[in-house]
Amino acid sequence: MQNLKDQNLIRVSKGPFFAKVLENREISDNIYKLRIESEEIAQNSLPGQFVSIKCADLTLRRPFSVAGVRENSFDLLYKVKGTGTEWLTNLKTGDITDIIGPMGNGFSIENKKSLLIGCGVGIAPIDFFMDVLSAKSLPYKSIGCFRSKYKNAKEYDYHITEDGTSALKGKLSDYLEQIITETATEKIFICGPNPAMQYVTEYALSLNIETEVALEGDFACGTGVCMGCAIKIKKGNALESAKICKDGPVFKGEEVVWR
């Protein structure tokens, strides 16, 4: 079975899956953790990939990064923003969700001294990535940056908060240089708001450190067919069109044209 899958001889379905909610609770201010039962998604997801959920009677599905997996379930971390995420907060254990995924391309898994950075709810794919690298005994350090102390179970090597409720008070930029030196970073992986990703990418580039960033965008199809999320990325000297949902959401930092 596994073999046929690898050789692309059988079609791996991406759903829609009608999957049971196992847990849905607020773990930090306005940030919820949603655990959903689905062996298919749990087994096939890589850090950086996302799933799309049908929320209420909205026309468009809402994309969320996979934040962790077990044998037959996976987690999402979502921040309440509008109609869709508000609706998600009402899901109860046992409710059935309509989900497709995993979609897109995840982070590269390499044996390099990696620095994983998650800012705000951008921590979701980073949490998953930490699990995967740990399981493979690959070297990494992690940074979590938040406005206020983030009460998730995970321990980050560097927990930065703007209000100083964690050990490190301030902003990512206050500590980045020191952390990179301390950890002898060879590659950086980041998910967070665009300005943070741009700052890190440009700084890393100046030190010749490779980066991979997980981008967000306004999706319609979320499957690569509508060109709704298309952006320009740099390939050598040329600009090429790329779809965040299909060619990303993870891109090499140096390829991104920051707006």
Binding site: L58, T59, L60, G217, D218, F219, A220, C226, M227, G228, C229, A230, I231, S241
Partner: peptide, 24 residues
């Protein structure tokens, strides 16, 4: 065709507005 600049998608009540600009 390169299509139109972002943003290209806006969900509205009961549908969506797209401005892809025939990128193909």
């Amino acid at each position: 065709r390169q299509g139109n600049p972002q943003p290209r998608i806006k969900e509205v009540h009961g549908g969506l507005i797209n401005s892809i600009g025939l990128e193909n």
